[in-house]
Computed example of a mutant assay.
Amino acid sequence: MNKHYTVGQLAALVEGEVIGDKELVIDGFGPLDAAQPGQLSFLAKAGGREALEKSAASAFLVPHDFSCEGRALIRVRDPYLAAAIIQNELLRRPFVAAGIHQRAVVGADCSLSAEISVGPLAVLGERVRLGARVSIGAGAVIGAEVSIGDDCVIHPNVTIEPRCRIGNRVIIHAGTVIGSDGYGYATDRHGNHVKRPQLGIVQIDDDVEIGANCCIDRATFGVTRIRSGAKIDNLVQIAHNVEVGENSLIVAQVGLAGSTVLGRNVVFGGQAGAAGHQTIGDRTMVAGKAAVHGDQPPGSMLAGVPAIPAKQWFKAANLFGKLPDLAKDLRQLKKEVAALREKDEPSS
């Protein structure tokens, strides 16, 4: 059953200003080109006026300085953000506890809230603790002594290894492994590699979302920690003793080597990486495919391999594309210089 809100109610959710009918009823959300009457849509930039005028949506989220006669508008500072908040509200449903499926396996001495859903073939080890309104998907494996807070969603085939700690409102998508052994070996004089025991844990704080098929390794000693509000995309590797700061964004196929420490609101673009044992300051932005070596101060903007200040890298990359022409010009200049020297040399 769809939820129904007035335009005025939705505007209050996002601190917006209503232009038009506040009592207009909205029961869904759609893109400009596909929205139907009764739905809300949004315009991120004023340049899309023509698409808005053609849209069948009943109301629109728009930038605060946008106007369009005859249309119901909610003016906001950031339409993209406002759209996300309203979509989440429209989609929000009360948790329905399905209980423990008869084909799930639950170990001894577990502490389980009455409000949980555990899917078929899921396995809970001994002394697992699940908070209220937790959903464990089919085939997930929760190791011994793992604790999971309230309102968490663990999707199918996730593995959480023993003793790891998961906070509240955490989402972990299918296939991800939390708490696998860190990559640590000592090499003897014969070249043989001796595994170093990985004795620590992983701690995931509140409001973290982790994508599909990620690997977050347990610490060698102590804790690998993902701090509150961090969002991690699919196919990310986070090594032992890494610390990801609050509200950081880690995009697909990023690799963070052991003991890397990220500050708050750090952004790593797709396929970027960081060498181990370095500190990357708050609000640093790392472009896709960049390779970071060495500590970085807060507010850095990095790109390239090895990563250097982004403006410097983009200038260098622009020159790189011109190298064939520059080499051709250099060869021509060398010929001309040689000809001048030959002309100036006295004849014998």
Rank of each mutant, 00 (worst) to 15 (best):
I136E: 00
G179H: 03
R92V: 05
I178L: 12
P79Y: 03
A98R: 14
A144R: 09
Q87T: 14
V128C: 04
G175L: 09
I178S: 05
I136V: 15
V146C: 04
I86G: 00
G125N: 04
E161I: 02
V158K: 00
R77F: 05
T159P: 02
L124F: 05
P156S: 08
I172D: 01
P120N: 09
A122P: 00
V177G: 03
I85V: 15
H155P: 06
C110V: 05
P79Q: 05
R92A: 11
G139D: 01
R77I: 14
I100L: 10
P162L: 12
I148G: 02
C152Q: 04
C110G: 04
A140W: 07
A132P: 02
S111V: 12
G119E: 08
R127M: 06
L90E: 05
I171Y: 06
L91N: 12
D150R: 11
N88P: 00
V177F: 10
H193S: 14
I154R: 00
S113G: 13
I166K: 02
G119K: 07
G149T: 10
H101L: 13
E161H: 12
I172N: 02
Q87R: 14
V170K: 01
R129P: 00
S117E: 06
L90M: 13
H190L: 14
S180R: 13
D151W: 04
N88W: 08
Y185P: 06
V153P: 00
A104T: 08
H193I: 11
R129C: 08
A132G: 02
I172W: 09
S117K: 09
D188L: 14
T176I: 11
L90F: 13
R93M: 10
K195V: 15
A108L: 12
R163F: 14
Q102K: 14
V134T: 10
L130V: 11
V106Q: 06
G99N: 11
R103Y: 10
A83M: 10
